[in-house]
Design a protein around this nucleic acid. Structure first.
Length: 739
DNA sequence: GTACTCTCAGTTTTT
DNA sequence: CTGAGAGTAC
């Protein structure tokens, strides 16, 4: 560790150089190195920068050595950026091994050092959501719970909520559990936890939870003492997003030295549903009586118009600490507000705007589309694909969640960790080798009876004659393979072994012989997987990375439009930001309206608005296809909260003007057992929903009506007789119904 | 044990 | 509309 310190000394950088770029308030926050400090800062005020600079300053001024500082962030991206920036500030020192990372990765690292204290071994597996669901489902079924009525998702959400609050099964009060799942939920939680231990695994929340248990246990006071001695300084980003478990963990670590620096913004608290407690920010002064609070309100990111809009919207929230962002800038364009007919037109208009920006030599990497929910990205993807506009969807279907990747990982996991029953189950019959549900049940029963893992059951049963000869031979071969692969792992490069495993298990071949279109892509993904592995020293490290970092870094130099959720956009900024789908039910989402959780939703709007540096475009559609049926929508209440004088509203097709909700341009149809409709073929936003040729007698299908037959053509109008009664609402503007 | 067809429920947001 | 899971026929 001393070598890091020397490196920093050798670099010829002054403390004052580090600080020179900051304003007085920011400097104050950076320079106070002793005691507790809360930086309350609005969007775009450089709060993360303060945190990063403070870290560099602690090192540069010689107050601390790298391993004495722990910096926690919520996303891997934020952690990586912090590392890069710190390294840069210190003149390019290597930052490997420093305690900068996400809450989960830091806790995981600690837990590996202490796993045996919660009866795990240090090579425990970290389960992903899919594994968690399958596990809880199995348990529920064994307990006779109807998993149709109580889906695993729901069961898991009970457990997650308790874990977010740092409640162990024995601490969940009966009142807390209520009569959840007929009073069985606590028992399921108990069983879930013991099952995790028996397969030597943790879920995400356990990483923190186990550490809290250890640090709180007087028997392990030595562990707490050790960390107290080591971590002299704690730095926490996005403090408003901490849940109770994270809060307790931090407090345990901080209680001796009390050198804590948190930065946060109560207006950007958007993770309440994940257990985040904004109260943690409010409680800060109580937890650390001499805490100093620095407020940052000068925004360096956005134009006055954008700030104005953000301030206006967020001021409708009652429950906030209150702060008002200001900017020294004066120039800026009005906010562009546009109503469109439907989701398709929304995509068309936005792609048009982006093309226009491109004409003006704006780099596409400065443009983002921020949506409320993942499904909204689809319409844009289709449009961008059609017109060939480069784009990337962040947080879409994730690399490590793809089927082939999860299968491959299950093989690797089982090699490293034979007790991983979930991995075993996943690959035992993939590729198909005649070990179906019957065989699996037999293994299961044996495993339960003897309290051992499925792999060990395999091992034991193949030594007996209890299995059918064919099955026995198959399993023997498989075990033999696994033992060999495990041995290989310590002999040769892990990337080589990985390839061998996929090859010899027949997995690669399974996709090579698959005739479906995706097969080729899957093989490419597998290549990419083994490629990504090379960056890690061994298989164990790689698997850890995979479970904590779901995203794979794709380095591409092409500038692309970013499409992502509002949640994913926190902490980022773009020159041009498009905010589609500002309708009641879309944003704010129906769920948050139903649950009366509009303040968090409004904070989300605030986050979205404040991502923009130069210009904001807000869109809302009158009609949207939801679950395959058309729904009419009214503009979001948040639109009404924008100050009129900074908004420039435009509309296409003349069906929407200004801030009022759009008129009812639709009606429902239901005429016996079939529907006849005349459809205008010149209206592209409607006829794009029709598939088929335009000749009398030909069949067509419509996204809303289903299929029908063309009975007449006149000019640009088609008369179609649909097979069944239309039960959907349709736009009267483009369709007339024949009575 | 596998492959195909049918029904039904589901859309927030994520480490 | 789509995907998962169940049910059915080989």
């Amino acid at each position: 560790m001393a070598s890091y310190f020397q490196n920093i000394e050798e670099k010829n950088i002054n403390s004052s150089d580090i600080l020179s770029e900051l304003n007085p308030e920011q400097q104050e926050a950076v320079e106070q190195t002793e005691g507790a400090l809360l930086v309350l800062a609005g969007a775009g005020t450089g709060k993360t920068r303060v945190l990063t600079t403070r870290l560099a300053h602690l090192l540069k001024s010689g107050v601390a050595k790298p391993h004495q500082i722990m910096a926690a962030t919520f996303t891997n991206k934020a952690a990586m950026e912090m590392k890069e920036r710190v390294s840069e500030l210190l003149g390019g020192v290597p930052i490997d091994g420093w305690w900068i990372g996400t809450f989960h990765s830091l806790a995981a690292r600690m837990l590996r050092q202490n796993a045996e204290k919660v009866s795990l071994s240090s090579n425990f597996t970290i389960l992903d959501m899919d594994d968690q669901m399958r596990l809880v489902k199995q348990i529920a079924e064994l307990e006779g719970v109807d998993t149709k009525k109580f889906p695993p998702r729901l069961l898991m959400s009970f457990i997650d909520n308790w874990k977010n609050k740092a409640l162990l099964p024995e601490n969940v009060s009966v009142e807390d559990a209520g009569d959840a799942i007929n009073g069985k939920m606590i028992k399921i939680y108990h069983l879930y936890q013991s099952r995790l231990k028996s397969i030597n695994a943790c879920d995400f929340n356990d990483l923190l939870l186990h550490m809290i248990v250890i640090l709180k246990n007087p028997e392990h006071k030595d562990v707490l003492d050790l960390y107290h001695d080591q971590f002299r300084y704690l730095l926490i980003d996005e403090y408003q997003d901490t849940n109770t478990a994270q809060y307790l963990w931090l407090r345990l670590l901080a209680q001796k030295n009390k050198n804590v620096c948190c930065v946060g913004d109560d207006d950007q608290s958007i993770y309440g549903w994940r257990g985040a407690e904004v109260e943690n920010i409010l409680r800060f002064e109580k937890d650390f009586p001499n805490a100093k609070i620095v407020r940052l309100e000068q925004n360096y990111r956005s134009t006055p118009q954008i700030l104005n809009a953000a301030n206006a919207v967020i001021s409708n929230n009652r429950n906030r600490m209150g702060k008002k962002l200001w900017s020294a800038g004066t120039d800026g364009e009005k906010i562009h507000l546009q109503g469109v007919w439907d989701g398709r037109q929304e995509a068309v208009e936005i792609s048009g705007e982006i093309e226009a920006l491109k004409q003006k030599d704006v780099s596409l990497s400065n443009v983002a589309i921020l949506v409320r929910a993942g499904f909204q990205t689809r319409e844009f993807e289709e449009r961008f694909m059609t017109i060939g506009l480069p784009y990337k969807v962040i947080g879409g279907p994730r690399f490590y969640e793809r089927r082939e990747i999860r299968d491959a990982l299950a093989y690797f996991r089982l090699v490293v960790q034979p007790s991983d029953d979930l991995a075993f189950e996943r690959i035992i019959n993939t590729p198909k080798r005649g070990v179906g549900s019957v065989a699996l049940r037999q293994l299961y029963e044996f495993a339960r009876e003897h309290g051992i893992s499925l792999y060990d059951s395999c091992l034991a049963l193949t030594k007996t004659t209890n299995l059918k000869p064919r099955l026995r031979a198959t399993l023997l071969e498989l075990i033999d393979n696994f033992e060999r692969w495990r041995a290989l792992l310590s002999e040769e490069a892990h990337t080589q072994t990985a390839k061998t495993i996929l090859e010899e298990s027949g997995y690669i071949n399974m996709w090579k012989t698959d005739k479906s279109i995706e097969a080729e892509g899957r093989l490419e993904n597998l290549e990419e997987l083994t490629g990504a592995m090379a960056e890690f020293e061994n298989m164990q490290d790689f698997l850890e990375h995979v479970s904590l970092v779901m995203e794979v870094q794709k380095n591409t130099n092409q500038a692309m439009v970013t499409i992502m959720t509002l949640h994913g956009s926190k902490g980022l900024e773009f020159d041009y930001v498009f905010l589609p789908g500002w309708e009641e039910g879309t944003f704010p989402s129906q769920r948050s309206i139903d649950e009366g959780n509009l303040e968090e939703e409004r904070r989300l709007a605030y986050v979205g608005l404040t991502r923009a540096k130069k210009k904001l475009h807000i869109f809302h559609a009158s009609n949207r296809l939801i679950f395959g049926s058309w729904k009419q929508l009214t503009p979001s209440r948040f639109i009404g909260e924008l100050p009129e004088d900074i908004v420039e509203a435009t509309s296409e097709n003349g069906f929407y003007r200004g801030h009022q909700s759009c008129s009812s341009d639709s009606f429902s149809i239901n005429q016996g057992n079939s529907t006849r409709a005349v459809i205008s073929t010149t209206s592209n936003s409607f006829t794009n929903n029709i598939k088929g040729s335009n000749q009398v007698g030909h069949r067509v299908s419509h996204t809303s009506f289903g299929s029908g037959t063309i009975v007449g053509i006149e000019g640009d109008k088609l008369e179609v007789k649909f097979d069944r009664a239309g039960r959907k609402k349709i736009m009267a503007r483009f369709v007339e119904f024949i009575t």
